[in-house]
Write a protein that binds this DNA or RNA. Structure first.
Length: 89
DNA sequence: GTTGAGCGTT
């Protein structure tokens, strides 16, 4: 089990610092990043947070999943591995 | 408005 968290349905007004501040309340945030569009540079409406441990990650899920942030009800869950870049279509 | 991004050789 990984300790990466997927945060979906985020408001465009939310940034990486906002996510970090939210998740650090439940544990140590190793890293956090908003999924910005590579070609547009704009937020895609979701992000990822790397917690120090899975235990802290679970606490963050229970504490932040389903909550409203920036007017949007965010969805927090364990992220899934990203496909290999070498396997581009 | 929901599973990133980067590089051409990790």
């Amino acid at each position: 089990m990984n300790n990466k968290l997927f945060v979906g349905n985020l408001a465009y007004s939310v940034d990486d610092a906002t996510l970090r501040d939210l998740f650090k309340q439940f544990g140590d945030v190793v890293s956090c990043n908003i999924a910005t569009d590579r070609e547009s540079g704009r937020s895609r409406g979701f992000g990822f947070v790397d917690m120090q441990s899975q235990q802290e990650a679970e606490s963050a899920i229970k504490g932040l999943n389903g909550t409203t942030l920036g007017g949007r009800q965010i969805s927090v869950s364990i992220s899934q591995p990203r496909p290999k870049a070498s396997s581009r279509y």
